[in-house]
Every structure is written in structure tokens, then in C-alpha cells.
Design a protein around this nucleic acid. Sequence first.
RNA 1: CGGGGCAUAGCGCAGCUGGUAGCGCGCGCCGUUUGGGACGGCGAGGUCGUCGGUUCAAAUCCGGCUGCCCCGACCA
Length: 479
Amino acid sequence: MSSQALTSPREDFSEWYNEIVYRADLAAASPVRGCVIIKPYGYELWEGIKGALDRRFKATGHQNAYFPLLIPMSFLQREAEHVEGFSPELAVVTIGGGKELEEPYVIRPTSETIIGDAFKKWIQSYRDLPLLMNQWANVVRWEMRTRPFLRTMEFLWQEGHTAHATHDEAEAETMQMLDVYADVAINEAAIPVIKGLKSNKERFAGALRTFSIEGMMGDKKALQCGTSHNLGQNFAKAFEIQFVDENNQRQFCWTTSWGMSTRMVGAVVMAHGDEKGLRLPPRLAPYQVVIVPIFKTDDDRGVVMENVERLKRELVAHDIRVHVDTRDYQPGFKFNDWEMRGVPVRLELGPRDVANNAVVAARRDKPGKEGKRVLTQDNISASIRDLLIEIQANMLQQATEFRDANIFDVKSYDELKGVVEQGGFARGWWAGTDDEELAIKAEIGATHRCYPLDQPGGTGTCFYTGRPAERVAIFAKAY
RNA sequence: CGGGGCAUAGCGCAGCUGGUAGCGCGCGCCGUUUGGGACGGCGAGGUCGUCGGUUCAAAUCCGGCUGCCCCGACCA
């Protein structure tokens, strides 16, 4: 907590982001390069996301399990594309108990291989399918450059792994989990993500098809917020995950995997934050309401605190997450501090309010006086509940309007360059090759984000090659 | 791995024409304050990243090492 002003996001978005992470108390620097300490406030935010996901996983029939952190090196090598994709960023354990290991272990960068090996043993018959599993875990990827939450060498995530009897079932699972991610992003995090199919170049190493949800951050860059992969039979063949079908025929399974990580915390910061700090969607906020008591004399203190405690009890009884700020700071300091930390609703309660059976409510999604109003204390939990719902909806609306105002349809490469230069998503008909996609990336730094699932229909002319195109794609600078 | 920086109090920095360390914020105590980032007084806190060299004397000059940050190529 500092009394200095926050760097403006318009001035230096990157610096603004780093300052918020630090000053909103989400994370702290660690002694290990590229790793951060997730502090309690940041971890609670992650727990909110985690809970929202976990409920949905269970509602769709998945069970949680836990697999080892260490994976035999040879497992990674079983799937050619997979090992090629992950080799550069593996951390490898070569010594254990003071002795060089016969076979090195890699610290999991993802768990398709070790879970594939288990699935091989667990699946024999079509009666064992589908096998629907998820694990909450940490993974390590030796990244060159890191940023808190967005890319760290160790991060927390969930990885779902499923096995099915047919391609279509696997595809349906892949899409179902993509929908779960979009549901969480949109309705919990208030980030209006776009569902889409990844290009060949952006596809997960070893997958048949990769789908993602892409969010637009406050600087108009894209952030991949979750991915869902149809792995086809690639891993099933590499790990011999087979079953006997109704006709007593041996077949390879069709598998999927899907993941969402602590990167989502960074997404919430970058999608909603403003010049005063973090803005948290009520559904994920560790504290939905903070009460700031205000008093001068000891007499006032007693009266005010009694009222504050009564309000708190009532809100808690209605499942509203409340925090009372009793720290020995002046109110103005606390207002700024909680705005930095993004609490959706602040209640200010002083002697005047006690006398009037009132409380001043300030909403974080609207700045200054515009967001402040006096509420009666009668029926306070109902008022607050409605207010939280309204804030959640308003934040989604604001983010959606921002996104839609910054997606541009392009018909030529020059137009795309213009969009990328001024910031935003460029959407256009695309029929380029992998190499042509890479050429665009090399020249202007924009990448193929996805082919949105929501397509205009019909066909068009590729903005880059002039060839006939069957799909539109989104290009943008990305994190 | 290529390019550029930086390492001094919890954080941010100054000191670098050599003489044994200081500022702001933060922290502790006391008092006055408290409806939009309060103020005064007192106080605690540092083997100056590390190893070596020069010197009567090194945070300061020289060399090696290590770590971190920023910009690129790779990525949830």
C-alpha cells in the first residue's frame, strides 16, 4: 500500500498492470526467477475462479484425481509432436537422493502423458467409457520471459483429461468444456470472451484440434483465457489406450484435454482495472462489500461500531462476503485502498448515518460521486444483493461494449496493419498457409487468434492472399 | 540465447573526483487527528550482491562471478 498515485493504464499499460498486482496485494516477488508468491488476496480470487470451474466440472460428470508431479522422461517422448513442442521448456530432475537417476524425470509441463499411461491400464471395455477426469495441479514451464499471473514458470491450473469411444463423443466433450470456460469467463469474470478454433500453428502440441476462448484486455490486446483440445487418437496410440467395443473389436480411444490457469487472475486485472486500480466482478470478489466505519469521538465509535457489526451480521447471514476495515487509518486512505483492491461495494457508516438509519454505498464500477448514494438500512441485504447483481451485469456490459468497439472487419492486409497499429482485433476472411500466418506475425507482431465459432456464413476473399476463403479469422497482438 | 540496464534499510532511491552511509515512503511508541490518500515529537532498522585486487584507508577505483529487471525470438 502506497500513497502514490497509480500509473495510468493509458500511459503505460504494462507498468500499470505490474503496480496493481503488487499494490492490490495479489502477489509478491519471489526469490526464484520467473515465479511469484500468490498472496492471500490473490489466492482467494483464484479460489473464486477455481470454485466456479469445479462446480461445473462436477455438474458435467467429471471427477477430481491427482497424478504425480514427476514424469519419466521417456513418457514425453512417446508422442512426437508433444515432445517437440514441450522440450524447450522442460525442467528436468536428474539427481535424486544424491545419486544420478537412471532415467531423468521431467517436472510436468502438462499431464497428458502420465495420465495417458494410467488410462491405458484403467480402460479395457467400452463399459469403462467415457472416462472423465480432472486434476488441480501446479505445472512448470521454463519460460524465457515471465509476467505475474500471465506467464510464470510455475503456475496453478486445472487440467481435464477424458477418454471416449468415438471421435464425435470426444469432439462433443471438447466443445462442452469450451462452453464451460466461456460460461465462467463471461458470467463469473465478466469477460466477454470469443470462442474459436485455433490455427494449425497455434494448436496444442499433439492435438487434432485446439479451441480457445480469447479475451480482449484493456490495451486491446488478446489474452487466451482457456483451451480445450480434441486430441484425436494421437495420445491413445502413443500410450496404447484401447478398449474392446460391443462387437469385441479392439479400438483406440479418442481423448481430450482442457485447461484454465491462474492466468485468469491476470485477465480479470487487465480486462476490468482502471486508473484507480483493480475492479473485481462481484461473483469472484473475495470481499464483495467492505464497511468503513467513520467516527471522531469514543462515544461515536461505540455507536458506529455497534451499527457496523449489526450490518455485517445481516449481510453475512445472506451469504454476502463482507469485510469491516477497522484499521487505524483515515477514511480517505481506506477509500483509496479498497478502490485499489477492487472491492465492488464500499459502505461508509458514520454518526450521521446511524442517526438517519442510513448508510452511504459507493460502487466500484462507477467513478466518484456518480457511484455513491445513500441507502436506508432497512432491508439492506436485499439492496446490496441487487446492487451486486447490477454491478456484475454492468461490468460485463462495459467490457462487451469495449470489445465490440475494438473489433474491426478488414478486407486487405493494409487494413489489418492499421487495426493492429491502433490496437484492436482484426477480423477478416482468411485462407492463408501456415507460412503466410508466420509472415504476418514476423512483420507486424499480430497472431492468428482463432477462427471464431460464430461465423458469418458463406465464403469470401482472403484479405491477405486474395484466395477464396471459407472462414473468417481474428488477428491481434496477444499476450 | 542476442541487445540494454541494475544490485546500498521492508520498498523506492541518493552517495561513486576514495576517509567507514543518507533521503522519501513504510515500520514502532506518544500526542493531536479521522465524511476522499492527516500532522508533530521520539525511535528501531544496513557486514553497501559476491569473490579477489589496488590503497594507510574501498559503497566509491580495477577484474572475475552470481542474481535480477527491461527490449526481441518461444508460450496456459
